[in-house]
Amino acid sequence: MRNLKYLFAFIGTLSVILTSCDVIEGPFTEEAVVGECLEKCKKILLEDYTGHKCGNCPRASEKVEELKNIYGEQLITIAIHAGSFAEPSGSYFTNDFRTNTGNEWDRHFGISAAGNPKGMINRSGYPESNHILDFEQWTQEVDKHLQNKPEAYIDLDVNYHSTTRSLEIFSTTEILQSTSDALSLNMILTENSVIAYQKNYGADPEKIPDYEHNHMMRKSLTGTWGTDLGQKYYDKDDLIKKSFHVILDLEWIPENMSVVAFISKTNNFELIQAQETPIK
């Protein structure tokens, strides 16, 4: 009889732990709130490392669009085709969407080596190896970064001449929080609606001939690690102006293209602000 109390105590503990379970009967999703960008708001860069032979990557692309529906213009995306899944091969996957800068980022941050689809949010977590994120982790990470106040703001002005396919970009970086960190400005061209083959494990057949590739990185105008903003110390309200010029490749469709700019800390590559504007 004395021993029975132990059994009851144990059963009681079991019951307490068993009831430690939340019951959710649906709906399972929160009401989507479209992000509203107030003046000079914080914007987040999501780098989606992908490849046309990566059968799981379309799921990450779907996640990108899902997040863009929620966060609107506060979320900026670059799809970087890099790694072995992005190599051209066979009779279907003949396109080469890789770029030198994308390849170097991929190698430096070790993204595709960790197995695409993977991504980075504002390059946060580097170099402690916490920067490589599965697409299921992106939502919370984006949400977390949006809680921070912007440290700078980028204003972009573009001027495109269709006859010469010449693009001029004028950027003005406004410092919102003083800092002594060295800062780099990166200027990237991306293209939406590139129709080409893509492998998709969720489709039947898996090889999709007319897949729409969005946010595809086309070119960096600032090399691999950007151009230095040029000051030793940045005071609040400092304005730093830069201009860039590029001739668009003939295969690119200007109507589908955007300029993505972002400012990163030179020492650890972490982003403090991003901006995007369409070319036309």
């Binding site: 732990i17 068993l18 379970c21 939340d22 019951v23 959710i24 399972f28 989507a32 899902e66 939502t139």
Partner: peptide, 18 residues
Amino acid sequence: SKFQKDLDPIFILPENVA
């Protein structure tokens, strides 16, 4: 049982899973 705070802006997640 495990506990993890629900910080997800999309899904309503159980914080306690047994």
